[in-house]
Amino acid sequence: MTSLLDVENLRVTFPTRSGSFEAVRGISFSLGRERLGIVGESGSGKSMTGRAILKLIRKPGIVTADRMQMGGTDLLTASEREMRRIRGRHASMIMQDPKFSLNPVMTVGSQITEALLTHEKLSRAEARKRAVAMLDAVAIRDPERVMSLYPHEVSGGMGQRIMIAMMLIPNPEILIADEPTSALDVSVQLQVLEIMDKLVTDRGMGLIFISHDLNLVSNFCDRILIMYAGRIVEVCQAGKLHEAKHPYTIGLLNSVPDLEHPRPRLDALQRDPAWREAPSVSALT
């Protein structure tokens, strides 16, 4: 399998008054034309990993790696100018909350066409036509009307579908979705995920799906990386999650209340200090 992205020994460090803090501590993984899930608790470094790939970590944060290769580009040496070309065109990112990631003073239409016009040479009329078609593809009814709305005039689920449309319109090869549905209601969640899943599969893209919800990820991904304290503790094939061996993975699975299998008490996760020290599992293929 040709990989779209290879990352070796990635570290994200933040200097603090009491020494440096490593949010990501030497992880390696590759992404092919597949759906890769990254799961962990808050503070496990999963979002930092997603941001580091697009070099979106602000100073004073430091990103280091032995290798970070996206297609033909070496991300480590790429200039900010080159990164701007890569973001959107080759890899784009969907953030958690549409309320904070859409521009509140631009209409939906101008935001989507802007994403397209940045990367392609085409007329405004043509861009508009493509944007309407894209909104239609993310199952938005009456896309012509939605084009002229402002973000505060749409619901959360619609906002997230607009984000997906905006991120997919320049046709990137890699989509990074950071908790794309955590801010949405359960019933809307599935709809948004199904749309994203379908578009990603149809276009043969690579998807990195970052989430804290192990069960959700297992439904929508082919391969899952489980992160703990900045390292990968286990790599699982999605269908074989029940065969997971690491006590942390098992603990996470057992701490979710299950409607169909009620238990008098939920299993609280007993954290072992050794997990933190164990070397990171490689997820290179």
Binding site: V186, N215, N219, G239, L259, E260
Partner: peptide, 26 residues
């Protein structure tokens, strides 16, 4: 609720969404 015996269509829809996000589609 655990036996998924809801009368109202909306309750059934909620239950269905929540079960599907837990259970693996395989």
């Amino acid at each position: 609720m655990r036996a998924l015996q809801a009368e109202h269509a909306y309750t059934r829809h909620l239950l269905d969404s929540s079960i599907r996000s837990v259970r693996e589609i395989s």
